[in-house]
Amino acid sequence: MEPTPLTTSSTLTSGALAAKPAGAAAHLDPHLHAPVPSFWPILLAGGIGAVFFLVFLVYLGVPLAGVLLAAAALYSLVAAAGWANTIAVERRLMDRLQTQKDLTRGFFFFLASEAMIFFAYFEYIYYTRFTGSVWPPAGMPKLETSLPAVATLILVGSSFTLNFAVKAFLRGKQAAAKNWMLLTIAMGIVFLGFQGFEWGYLNGVMSFTVTTGAFSSAYFIMTGFHGAHVTVGLLMLSLVYWRMEKGEYNRDYHMSLMAAEYYWHFVDIVWILLFFTLYLF
């Protein structure tokens, strides 16, 4: 059953809405305002720190480091899931509208910081291109564009199907929304398949590897970083689908659906720029 949003408990976390009269008693009870302690932040920070250090040990070739790295990564995932779960529990205590507003805004800022990482790579490739004496650098094969073009169409199409899913959801057509969602996820997987094929082909047949030259290095780091984002996007969409299946969303509370949508569009836009930069330009 959908828990009733507790609008009267807005004093718990939100400054802006707290002024609404919620009963003087609630205001003066210090326990209601005490920040909720949690082990998850320190546990996750330790996990991520361990992952970084173990990546280093794997690079050094320390025995068992790989196994420990996998364990640390798994541990970090568990910690992140535990953290996410406490949000779901505490959400009932908080003013959900305000929380969703905060999360949405925070998510946009997060996307801005992601865009700046891509900006560094784009700056790299354009700078190298316009200041380097020879372009394309010697020994660079011309990249085949027809298959990537098909992949591009699929990824761009998936932004539309996702948009249809959200629109259907907002109109209350749950079944249609879920179908469009599934189609979007399938298209994302197909895109990753194309990408994997392309990597294999370039590496194996064309001998175009990360060490071939500055362009190939940029090609692999940009498509690889983008592919990692597509993977994260797919995980988000799957989670959203699962929550739709469980009927956890309603008209007012579907922030993670919107977040997944924005993230997917973001990944799509980055790909269009990448396709233009790496394949066409």
């Binding site: 865009a115 700046m116 990360v210």
Partner: peptide, 21 residues
């Protein structure tokens, strides 16, 4: 800061993966 992170990732991959950034 993300731009620094991007630059650092490229620096590390030059060291570890012999890329050519």
């Amino acid at each position: 800061l993300p731009v620094l992170s991007g630059a650092m990732i490229m620096l590390l991959s030059d060291r570890w993966l012999s890329t050519g950034f």
